[in-house]
Simulated scan of single mutants.
Amino acid sequence: MTTLQDSTPTPRGAALVDSFGRVHTDLRISLTDRCSLRCTYCMPEQGNTWLTRSSLMTPDEIERVAAVAAGLGVTSIRLTGGEPLLRRDLVDVVQRLSALRSGGQPLEVTLTTNGIGLPARLDELWAAGLSRVNISIDTLRRERFLELTKRDRLADVLEGIHAAAASGRPLKLNAVAMRCVNDDEIVDLVELATSVGAQMRFIEQMPLDAGHVWDRDSMLTREEILEALSRRWDLTPVPGRGAEPAERWWLDGGPHAVGVIASVSAPFCGSCNRLRMTADGQLRSCLFATEELDLMPALRADGPAPSEASGDLAIEAVLRAAVRGKKAGHAIDSPTFLQPIRGMNAIGG
């Protein structure tokens, strides 16, 4: 954790622009570090030290930070975890955030989930204002799923995917591509996605595992993923990527497309527009950041409660400091690269 140091004045309401000219319009909010699965690239099966309930941001605190961010040009919020469906107040959080405005327009509120338990909550989430769901699925084979996640829940994940698809709302499926693990299912996963009208996205495995045992040689690269896809489909680049993390290609000219998020082999740091907030109120300027700025003092000040205006100014100061301190890139290829102490489940996707 890093304390707030820089207090350089900036005009109120000005956009969140870093020293490299990147305008930040996307905020990822982790709601919990807990999960119903134990994916090996994310967290260990046992021995996890969880955040205490009292350290988690409340719906009021999440809404307050989001409202300040929206006033500074943030237009989209992604709710992540851990597994956000484990938060009993998830619907309340979605409802509060979707009611906020940025530039006169409602915020886009999306959810990344493993899909377990999703069918029972979808209707109320849509009613609360959720815009889209991203569901993670790395394999379609039951035994392999059990080996990867340490839980026999593939049927539940597939049920969540089919329920989300049946709703007619936008749906994306995410898979971490791993050599000698699921590299023989690249085509199968895309065919599942196209069969339910979803977009499949493959993610290069990143050094974000809690055990810090990531090995670049086990990572399936962007080029290898595209090679596997090109054996089945003719791939045509989709133009207009903008700040999106995924490069996309049309499959046989469309209408279906597939995406690849190549954070390691083809980093897209130059167009990054994202900030991340952990479930315990730590602001991160990068997924691979080794430093965090603490929002909690601005939200839970000791002594007399600050006025709403002064409290919002304190939140804004932390947001601006995080953006000002953002580096040009994550430098995974640098010999000085250090893996974040937190695992992916504690950082948020």
Rank of each mutant, 00 (worst) to 15 (best):
G242W: 00
S195A: 07
C286M: 12
H256I: 03
A177F: 02
W214S: 01
L283W: 10
V238D: 05
D188N: 05
M219W: 05
I225R: 03
E191H: 09
E244H: 15
L251S: 06
E223V: 07
L235Q: 09
F202Q: 03
A177D: 03
V190H: 06
M206Q: 14
R300T: 10
E291T: 14
G281E: 10
V258M: 12
E185I: 11
W250K: 09
I186T: 08
R300W: 11
M296Y: 00
W249A: 09
C272Y: 06
P207K: 13
A228I: 05
R284S: 11
L251W: 06
L235S: 11
Q205V: 04
F288Y: 15
C269V: 09
T221L: 08
F288L: 10
D294T: 09
D215M: 00
E292W: 01
L283T: 12
Q282C: 04
D215A: 08
P207H: 10
E291W: 04
F288S: 11
I261F: 02
P267D: 13
D188M: 02
M277T: 11
A257S: 15
S285P: 13
E247T: 09
L287F: 05
A301V: 10
G211Y: 04
T290C: 07
D252S: 14
A177I: 01
R284T: 07
P255C: 01
E204K: 04
T278F: 14
G281L: 12
L283P: 08
M277I: 13
F288D: 08
E185G: 02
A198L: 13
E244Y: 00
A289P: 06
R179P: 06
E224T: 00
M219N: 03
L229F: 08
S285L: 02
L283R: 03
I261A: 03
A228H: 15
D294E: 15
G270M: 00
D217Q: 01
C269M: 10
